[in-house]
């Protein structure tokens, strides 16, 4: 195996070919299609390699999303994983690896926690980090202007590129107009569309990246 192939981020059983370090992926699909599960599987696929994980949990409490993460085979290993939850109804978590920000609309708060956690993992020797953001749709619900969202997404994706990480950021295209989703997609290197067919099958397709399977693939 070449050095380049070794360094690429793998996604185990998902029909996504390994991607180069520094790749930011928009994972787009409705919740009922299992979109969040696909993004979480993309993060959990780094378990064997010991990749770090920073997970921004805007849709639900950190604990709930960590349960979902465990459900797809992930392990909350505190030596290499941290979570940012946004507006927990039960107050701040006692877990030092779960940081709480007041609201999904507090992009400054989420941003500085993200920078701090990412930096902490990196300086702690975890040099391969997978970032998850669940979800951009929730962030959009809490802001009026889009400028801060673009700024926040550039901050996250810029960090991932600089640090040779990988990111899977979820958006529900049905929850926003197509023009907004399209302009947000511009921040990413590629897009993973997720859908559930009429007969209940879950599928994905990768767009915008080289050397990926063409068309819809069975998950």
């Amino acid at each position: 195996m070449s050095q380049d192939a070794q360094q690429r981020y793998q996604f185990d059983e998902l029909p996504i070919e390994p991607v180069r370090p520094g790749t930011n992926l928009l994972v787009a699909g409705p919740p009922f299609a299992g979109t969040n599960a696909v993004a979480l599987r993309m993060l959990a696929a780094g378990e064997r390699a010991g990749d770090g994980v920073v997970l921004v949990a805007a849709d639900d409490t950190g604990t709930t999303i960590l349960d979902d993460y465990s459900g797809v085979g992930g392990t909350f290993d505190r030596a290499r994983m941290a979570v940012i939850e946004c507006g927990s109804t039960s107050g701040s978590s006692d877990d030092t690896n779960i940081k709480t920000v007041r609201s999904p609309g507090d992009l400054t708060g989420i941003g500085i926690e993200f920078s701090s956690l990412y930096e902490g993992l990196y300086t702690g020797g975890v040099e391969r980090v997978r970032t998850g953001l669940l979800s951009i749709s929730t962030l959009l619900m809490y802001v009026d202007e889009l400028q801060p969202v673009y700024r926040f997404l550039h901050t996250v994706t810029g960090r991932v590129r600089s640090a040779d990480g990988v990111a899977a950021c979820v958006v529900d295209p049905s929850a926003r107009d197509e023009r907004t989703v399209s302009s947000i997609a511009q921040t990413f290197d590629g897009r993973v569309d997720v859908r559930r067919t009429d007969d209940g099958k879950h599928q994905l397709r990768v767009r915008g990246l080289p050397d990926q399977p063409e068309g819809w693939q069975k998950i």
Binding site: L107, T108, G111, E113, S115, E119, P148, R151, F152
Partner: peptide
């Protein structure tokens, strides 16, 4: 860091 009133600023932290 109290971000109240500064939610849309977005900055790096070191």
């Amino acid at each position: 860091v109290d971000t109240t009133g500064f939610e849309g600023i977005v900055a790096e932290f070191l």
